Simulated assay, not measured.
Amino acid sequence: MDRPQLPLNALRAFEVAARQGSFTRAAIELCVTQAAISHQIKMLEERLGVSLFIRTSRGLQLTDEGKSLLPVLEDAFDAISAALDRFDDPGYVEVLNVGVVTTFATGWLIERLGAFRRAYPGIDLRLSTNNNRVDLAGEGLEMAIRFGDGGWPGLWRRRLFDAPMSPLCDAATAARLKQPTDLYALPLMRSYRNSEWESWFAMQGLVCPKLNGPRLDSSPAMASLAAAGHGVALLPVSMFAKDLEEGRLVRPFPAEITTGSYWLTRLASRPPTQAMKRFETWLISEVAGWQETLSSCPSREA
């Protein structure tokens, strides 16, 4: 294929500036001046005949043309970097950055990481936990495991499993709960998904009381408060199986609701790397094995 002379310095300046969202931070990363970055971007825009950035009060924003160019350059530079790494290091290890909602990380994934590393020593799996709000491109992530209904535009997704939720609390609190209406007298902890308690009470044929418990964006934090006797939390039961088994949490009522699932996601515009494919295959296999034994996991119910 014939290639015109490629403005590699300008393309690199654009890719870093777009990723960093700032000419200043791009200059720091590339060890050049801010003026040099600005000059390279201007030269590239003139060559292409389009604007790539819009300056706003919140910083740099990509134009539609910039958004279409960025993933092409990211893939190209990643491929070049990977090829050069293999020349530099015979024991090359491919880095895989995965964002994981904290509940899934602490309740399911972390205890299985040793198995993944033994199976794939050539992949350096790096996890970044979050509260289910994640920007794959902006955070430099290849993949993300998140909770929801799967309705995320621009993402490829594969459902892992549902996460039914039920009220959980400490043993002393559970002893006071004989029927669902007894919950009316207790603090009910809330996540940012406001309708969860309403859905659970509706399943019992009850009106949800006014929620006056603490609002948190972390299920593990809610579980810690519940275990300490500060109220009742509506949590995905399977993610807290160990706490139930060891008695830190108790499940006073069997009723549960399903408001979403855990999903493995990546940008639909970016083809999966070998490491991404292997992680997906391993993850699906682990989920299948876990689901086969899930019914035998003990739980604590009052």
Rank of each mutant, 00 (worst) to 15 (best):
182 D>M: 10
172 A>H: 14
162 D>L: 08
64 D>Y: 06
16 V>Q: 14
90 P>D: 11
211 L>Y: 00
257 I>D: 07
226 A>G: 03
113 L>P: 00
7 P>Y: 11
137 A>V: 15
213 G>Q: 06
265 T>L: 10
11 L>F: 15
63 T>L: 02
113 L>W: 03
301 E>F: 13
133 R>F: 07
132 N>W: 09
104 F>S: 02
280 E>W: 09
87 F>P: 00
11 L>R: 14
21 G>R: 07
123 I>R: 00
136 L>R: 11
14 F>N: 12
291 Q>L: 15
148 G>N: 09
237 V>L: 07
262 Y>I: 06
34 Q>K: 12
262 Y>Q: 03
234 L>P: 11
214 P>Q: 04
33 T>F: 04
36 A>R: 09
255 A>T: 12
255 A>K: 11
207 V>C: 03
134 V>E: 11
160 L>F: 03
111 E>N: 08
112 R>M: 02
93 V>A: 00
90 P>N: 10
299 S>Y: 03
234 L>A: 05
17 A>P: 13
116 F>Q: 02
6 L>N: 11
101 V>N: 05
89 D>C: 05
130 N>R: 05
120 Y>I: 00
271 P>S: 13
153 P>G: 05
117 R>C: 00
240 F>Y: 14
149 D>R: 10
44 L>I: 14
136 L>Q: 09
276 M>W: 07
55 R>P: 01
232 V>N: 06
76 A>P: 03
209 P>E: 00
55 R>W: 06
183 L>Y: 07
133 R>Y: 09
18 A>N: 10
208 C>I: 03
252 P>N: 12
123 I>S: 00
226 A>H: 03
119 A>E: 08
